[in-house]
Each structure stands twice: as C-alpha cells, then as structure tokens.
Design a protein around this nucleic acid. Sequence first.
DNA 1: CGGAATCCATAACGATACTG
DNA 2: CAGTATCGTTATGGATTCCG
Lengths: 121, 121
Amino acid sequence: MTEPHWDPFNRDCPTRRLLDRIGDRWTVLVIGALAEGPLRFGELARRVDGVSQKMLTQTLRGLERDGLVDRTLYPQVPPRVEYELTHAGRTLREPLGALDAWARTHMSGVIAAREEYDRAV
Amino acid sequence: MTEPHWDPFNRDCPTRRLLDRIGDRWTVLVIGALAEGPLRFGELARRVDGVSQKMLTQTLRGLERDGLVDRTLYPQVPPRVEYELTHAGRTLREPLGALDAWARTHMSGVIAAREEYDRAV
DNA sequence: CGGAATCCATAACGATACTG
DNA sequence: CAGTATCGTTATGGATTCCG
C-alpha cells in the first residue's frame, strides 16, 4: 500500500499557495469563528481573542479577495457590516476541522515532548 | 443540525498552539516530504525546493523538539543523518493530506477569485 | 460601528562564511 | 555531509490616531 502523500516539492504547487494564504496568525481563526454563521465585525473582534482591528480587517479583506468570505454592508448609521463564509469558504471547514481534531488529541503530547526536550538540553 | 466548529476563541486553545507550531513557511512542507519515509538532510533540502540550510535545520529541530520527527545520526565520516516522522508525526499526515486535497481542488478557484477582485479594484 | 492611515518593534527569513 | 554563526533585509503584527 502506498502511503498518501502530497507534493511539497516545487514552489508553485497548490499546497504552497494554500499555506501562503492561511499560514498567518489569524486567517484560520477567523474562518473558525465564521464556521457557525455570519458575524458582525465587532462580534468577530470579540470572539477571536487578541486580534487587533487592523489585523482583523486585513484578514477579512484577504479572505474576501480570495472568494472565501462575503462582506455585506447595511447602509445604516452607524454602519452594520456582516461577514459570512462563501460556499468555497464553507468547504474549508472540514479539513480545518480535521486539523483541529488532531490538535485537541495530540497537542498536549506535543507540549509534553517539548518540555521534556528542553529539560534534556 | 449544528455545524461542526472548532474553538478559536481563547488564546490558549490547542488549535492556536498547533497553528503556532505549523504556521510557518516550511514545517508543513517538511512533514510532507517525510510522509513517505526517512530522508537524509541533503535529500530533504533538495526536495523542499527553496528551503535554505538554516531554515531546514531550524524546522527539523523544532519538529524533533515536539516529538514529531526522529533524528538518527550515523557516526561516519562524512556524517549521515536521517530524519523520519515519529508515530505522532505520522498521525499528522491525514489532516494535512486533507488540507492538501482541498488545495488541489479549490486553489485554482481561489486564485481566479483573487485576480477577479484585483481587476475590480 | 467599522474601518483607514501611520508609525514602530520585532520576528521571520535569506545569504554568506566557516567547521567537525 | 550536515551542520553552526553572523549579518542584513523584509514581512508581520501591534498601538495609536483619525474619519464617515
């Protein structure tokens, strides 16, 4: 049986492009916060603990640009802006959920290994 | 039906810790290169196109520290060093493979959306 | 309320040179 | 071969201020 493998070998493979896209501190977290449904800007800011206004805006713009998030402006005063995952964005929930499941079951072991390693050094 | 969701809401959740771990330019690519079996340092460097010696070393040290990669030194001259995924490291192949599958099917659409968005601006 | 614009600190990374 | 050490650059993100 051949093990599954993905192709990280050349600079322009889809995997690298995806990593360039979601490999920052906030993108995955914002998608996670939007996984259950639309949220306003301020709600998002409160849910994703620690994100600054600037980074939240920047992250959302990037996701919008890539067709993963829809932005809806309700022209009121004060303005109301809602963000929600597009269809494409929703398809990301599954693989990201798998990654999260891995984190929940294995991450404590990783932390333990790390502390063990640091003691040895 | 409640949608599956993962918890990105507080700073210390496992998901954030995982993202801190694999959310750099090279870690996921190195795991991918090791997915099929052990490799020597030089082989890894050639496969992960564009990685510098420094970053490859640094990435491998981090993975070793976290118990995801084993390092075996064969005391010869010149030295031979082999890296391979640990059991924990191998369990990461599946969720990362799912992410890669997503990239292969959706990434071209993402790129297209991006170019469309940039034309509009 | 939901940003945009600016400034600044640091972390991430790459290139190069050297070594057991 | 498989690193380590150092340096310089760029990317990233945080804090602050201002605005419709």
